[in-house]
Computed example of a mutant assay.
Amino acid sequence: MVHGVESALTVRVILISPAMNPGLREARFEGDAPLDEAGTRRARAAAGGVPDADLCLSGGSERCLRTAEVLGLQPVSELALADWAMGRWRGKRLSDVSDSEPEAVASWLADPDAAPHGGESLSNLSARVGGWLDGLEEGSGRVLAVVEPAVVRAAIVHGLGLPSSAFWRLDVPPLTRTELSGRQGRWNLMCGQAL
């Protein structure tokens, strides 16, 4: 009986990273673009591995919404789960920005409060995603969200109370599932599961 009570109070958050697209392949900041043929094909093949959920959400990027559609989901777009806002770097390749603004990129990578691009700092991204995660009510059941890799990484860092520098050490491949489960502010992590 106690086990059942604990299970009812646990929130399970399943974060699915979207399929590949040209922006991700080219390492572009906020590289929102339609899925390419290979990404669509892989998402279609993975659709059978998507778990059931009580609530289905998505980041607002075309890549997230299209991946969710191909996976057979009908998500609600959630503003708190939007991709990392990169200001004037949006759409640019990391390599190009590194060449033209090396000091700005170095600052951005070293200081979680830096936002030389005029967009969101890492601290702001983590606070936004962490606020959403902490705002989920106990007993919400399974919450599934198709979100960009930066959102997955921010959720892991926040949920586990890791230092901001850990964000840069996490890789989130396309079409993988990361699960955070917890209650009363205590989160456990299951990561890197292929769909």
Score class of each variant (00 low, 15 high):
157 V>F: 06
89 W>I: 11
152 V>I: 15
38 A>D: 08
16 I>R: 00
117 H>K: 08
71 L>I: 13
130 G>V: 07
167 F>D: 06
191 C>G: 14
193 Q>A: 15
155 A>T: 09
48 G>Y: 10
40 T>P: 00
144 L>Q: 07
187 W>C: 09
24 L>C: 01
24 L>S: 07
130 G>R: 11
142 R>W: 06
91 G>Y: 08
89 W>H: 11
65 L>W: 01
27 A>R: 15
29 F>W: 15
61 S>E: 13
67 T>F: 08
123 S>F: 04
154 A>N: 05
136 L>D: 01
29 F>A: 10
179 E>I: 15
1 M>I: 05
101 E>R: 13
66 R>V: 10
42 R>H: 12
67 T>A: 05
120 E>N: 14
38 A>L: 11
91 G>E: 08
116 P>N: 12
20 M>S: 06
149 P>D: 06
62 E>F: 00
1 M>D: 07
63 R>Y: 01
171 D>Y: 07
44 R>Y: 02
180 L>T: 10
56 C>Q: 07
185 G>P: 12
77 S>T: 14
94 L>G: 00
126 S>P: 00
143 V>P: 06
94 L>C: 00
189 L>G: 02
183 R>W: 11
170 L>Q: 04
28 R>G: 07
169 R>H: 12
174 P>M: 09
145 A>S: 09
158 H>G: 05
88 R>T: 15
142 R>H: 10
84 W>Q: 01
108 W>M: 08
50 V>D: 07
13 V>M: 01
110 A>D: 07
105 V>R: 02
118 G>A: 14
36 D>E: 14
164 S>L: 03
28 R>T: 09
25 R>G: 01
88 R>Y: 11
179 E>Y: 02
171 D>M: 07
98 S>C: 08
28 R>C: 12
25 R>A: 14
157 V>C: 10
171 D>S: 15
191 C>K: 05
63 R>V: 14
64 C>G: 06
139 G>S: 09
44 R>N: 07
89 W>D: 06
172 V>R: 00
12 R>F: 03
107 S>L: 15
121 S>R: 13
13 V>W: 00
191 C>T: 13
15 L>C: 04
179 E>Q: 14
65 L>H: 03
92 K>N: 13
68 A>C: 10
16 I>Y: 00
6 E>C: 00
59 G>K: 06
59 G>A: 05
118 G>K: 15
125 L>S: 02
120 E>P: 11
23 G>R: 01
81 L>R: 04
141 G>L: 14
85 A>L: 11
141 G>I: 11
